[in-house]
Design a protein around this nucleic acid. Structure first.
Lengths: 204, 204
DNA sequence: ATATTTGTTAACCAAATGGTTTAACCATGA
DNA sequence: TCATGGTTAAACCATTTGGTTAACAAATAT
């Protein structure tokens, strides 16, 4: 247990992450971030000049945390199913420890304008090169190792099965009578289900 | 082509739907809704007393449009795969004509407090009774007609594959070089992919 | 020690935003 | 025709909100 006192800047980042990621840009309030960080509101503007600037720091950091992990896996030399399993595992691990991140990302990516996306693309060293994965899938199909599928559909399906459960939790816990711990269990066993599902669905 | 002049109330609903569903509660502005409806801001408050009230009307209507369609299917007497295909088709059709709805629903369900969800539950005549579907899946497994799967996982997977593509579009059109029309094509061929995927994944 | 930069706060400000008031407008029935 | 009720808009109001100022404290350099 580390007990180091966080610097003001660290406290701001931590607080801003929490507030922005859980409430989104439009729903976040500078005052709330200041309170969460235990500082004066003016400090936020001293360190990061505006809400927009602070938001970009947080958002870009979140994106940059995830994107490379996948990008790196995509180009690795692994059998297709192992690679898909690794992608699934990476997403699950990342989002289990940050369950609000998926909705935040999807949200801000749709909400923020092109300038934001351009800035993101400029700052992320390298985006995942999915063509790599698509080629691999294509080859497996041609070699008759897996059932014919459109590579993009397979990627989309893999990502869907993995990420969607994090964003649709309130549908089940709020509307249907699923408890949070029941839902956690489901997410806990999600990897096995997905991998088995992919394995069987791709069998020739 | 109907050319009836819409009543003020209808114009408000139409405008509010558009703004709320695309920007969410926090991002929507009463002034913008008024502009969109071509009326004075005071009119909004004349017809619906507050932003909150107006929002609830819109949000509850959206929810109530989708929920029963599924609920009704769930309890229908159909072979499992046909039923899943019907669910997939219902979601796809609904969201193709309202692509922002999924993210809106997921968002507001996580953002709005319990009172909102309670009000929703109170107003929706009957929520889908998934136990019905679960039992059917369980039976198919026990009868050896499909590979053993946890019913909830299968439901989650089906919904994921179907709905997630609507919310992750900007990931591909914004970050990866997929064009909107390419993405539309993918969504257009989504049903066949999902049904084939489910079929093969469930084979014993 | 002293000047200077850096960090911090309270008070303040202007714009945005949800909401209200007031009065005019307009159809309908008495 | 003139009440009467719902409908509409302009101006207004109060609060919230992002952002600034100015004074002060705490380091840091000279």
């Amino acid at each position: 247990m580390k007990l180091t006192t966080l610097s003001t800047e660290e406290r701001i980042i931590k607080a801003a992450s929490k507030i922005f990621i859980s409430k989104g840009y439009a729903g976040a309030r500078m005052q709330e971030i200041a309170d969460e960080a235990g500082i004066n509101k003016a400090m936020l503007h001293y360190y990061y000049r505006s809400k927009d600037k602070l938001f970009r720091v947080i958002a870009l950091a979140s994106f940059k945390e995830i994107i490379p992990r996948i990008g790196h896996l995509i180009e690795k030399d692994l059998p297709l199913l192992e690679k898909l399993a690794a992608i699934v595992d990476t997403y699950l691990t990342t989002f289990k420890s940050n369950p609000n991140l998926p909705l935040f990302i999807l949200n801000e990516l749709t909400q923020q304008g092109d300038e934001f996306i351009d800035e993101l693309k400029a700052q992320v060293a390298e985006l995942p090169r999915f063509e790599y994965l698509f080629a691999q899938i294509q080859k497996e199909v041609e070699d008759g190792n897996i059932r014919p599928v459109l590579p993009f559909h397979l990627l989309l399906t893999t990502m869907s099965m993995t990420i969607f459960p994090f964003v649709c939790r309130p549908v089940f816990t709020g509307l249907i009578g699923v408890t949070n711990s029941q839902y956690d269990e489901i997410i806990g066993s999600r990897k096995e289900h997905i991998v088995a599902f992919l394995t069987h669905a791709l069998k020739t």
